[in-house]
Structures are given as structure tokens and as C-alpha cells.
Amino acid sequence: MKLPLRRWRQWFSGLLSPRRADVPPLTLTQRRVYVLPTAAGLMYAFTLALMLIGSINYNLSLGYALTFLLAGLGIVAIVQSFRNLAGLQLRPARPTPGFAGAQVHFGVRLDSQRRRTGLKLSLAGGESVLCHVQTQELVHLALPVQHRGWQAMPRLTVASTWPLGLIKAWSHARFDERSLVYPAPVAAAPPWPGAGGEGRHLDMSEPDDFFGLRPHRSGDLRQHVAWKASARLDEHLLSKQFAAEQGELLWFRLDLAPGATLEEKLSVLTRWVLDAHAAQQRYALRLDGTALPPATGSEHLHACLQALALYGPPPDERR
């Protein structure tokens, strides 16, 4: 019984939602704000109908007056609910990446000329947050994510039933914004490759040990240019990188991570990277075609995690 209703709802919200991405900053103009009575609003209307019938039946002049005053209040509620949204300015803020299986946070900045109360912001399939805006407000909305890679920002809904809860005003926005989803780290990490001595063989690397590729910078030695790889890309030159000068450092490679599938391996690597970062160890990461030279710090961590997130073919038919 519930199914057709949901389908209808989906059709209806599809009808109202914008098809193209909105260009920030997005101002909620009159045409974008919709109003409909809530369940409470319908109950209110029903009560008013009963009161009107009562007034007619008993010829109650003051009953008419009360009914009409409440009817006027209903109209005022429509206008006020509409006003609470109309003119609000939205723009996406920098999203906060997260791990698959957990959540990412999409930021939304709200700008307003006037005070707005009880705005409920929600992402399709995600969290909703209530906020009041004086002039400017920054809201972060969590979205549960399952798969690593890019997660597009789903449709954003701003809704409000202020002031009386009888009328719901809402508006949709779709921003061309995406957040990175890191692979889910495995819970129980196998020992680092370095710990068993296996990974450390790279440690005593020859100075010309090939480590990976990176974009060419002026000043790179000509013999380090990876001509073949660059030819495939035809955008800019790539330089070979060599692991040389590091002392105590960890080298993480795909083939060193245990696991049956690529995803499992990536999960293990993610865990290693996180643990290495937590232990403030120098570490490097090499995936096929990408190499991050040994370093420490959060920037390095995020670079590694990003490489892991975007490595290889998407694990699922991601959009």
C-alpha cells in the first residue's frame, strides 16, 4: 500500500527538483519556493470547516468571527512560511571527505538579509540539520557513503514550517559539488610491511631506485623524464621519481597488502597509512601509475588517501 505513494512522491519531487546543477550563489527566488500544507495544516483546515458549520448552525456571529480570524491566520502562515525561505542565498562550502562506510560532510553557506528561523537543511539520503540564520550561517550536512571515490553532492532541500507548523515551504538546490570518499580502513590491521622486514628491502634502495611518476617540473633532469608515459597522456610531461635519500621510512605498495580483492588491499593500505600517520612515521605510497614520495604530515596523509580513493576502476558502478 505504501509503494504507490512513495512512487508518486518520487515522481512529484522529481518534477519539482531542478534538472541542471545550480550555479552558486543560488538565491531562492519566488519561483523556486514551494508551499503546501502539512498534516497539521490539513487538520487545522478541517477544524476550521467544522467551526464554520457550527457557526452557521447556531447562528454564532462571534463563531464566524473566530473562524474567519483563524482562516486569516492560515493565510498569514502561508505568506510567512514562504517569506522564511524566499530570498535566502545558498552556496556550497568545501566538503569534508570521509571514509567509505562512514560519512562525508557537505558544507552549505547560507546568506540572508534578514533573520530566518527553523530552516531544515537536508541532503537526499543524508542527514538533516536545523538552523536559524541571522545574516550568515555555515552548515555541514553528513551523508552516509558506501563506496570510495568521488561522491557527488546529492540534492539539497531547504524546508521550514515556521511560524505555525501549518504550512511547509521548501526549495531544492543541486550543486555541482563533490566530496572524496576514502576507502574504508580495515578494522584489524595486519602488521606493516616494514615490521616484518619484508617491506624494508626497499629501504636500502639504490639511489636510482625507480619509485613512481610525478608531473614534470622545470629543473628536472632530462634523463628522468618518462617519455613513454608522457606520450600516453599528451598533456604534460611526467618525471620519474626515485626514492633515495630517506632513512627510517615505510613503503606501502599494493602488492605488499594482504587481501583477496583490490578493495580489501586498498582497505589495508588505508589502515597502514592512517596508522603510520598516527605514529608520525615517514611513509611513501606507490600504486600503479601513482607514487607519493616519502613524507609526513596531514597534507601527505590526504594525498595518500586521495590516491587510494581514486585508484583504479571504480569498485561499483559509481556515478
Binding site: A65, L69, L70, A71, G72, L73, I75, A77, L164
Partner: peptide
């Protein structure tokens, strides 16, 4: 304030 805004509607309807 809300009721004040509703008052003109009441008068017209009445």
C-alpha cells in the same frame, strides 16, 4: 503580530 496580520482577512471575510 501574526493575529494582527490576520485581522484584515477576518474583517473582509466577516
Amino acid at each position: 503580530s501574526l493575529l494582527g496580520q490576520a485581522l484584515p482577512f477576518m474583517l473582509v471575510l466577516f
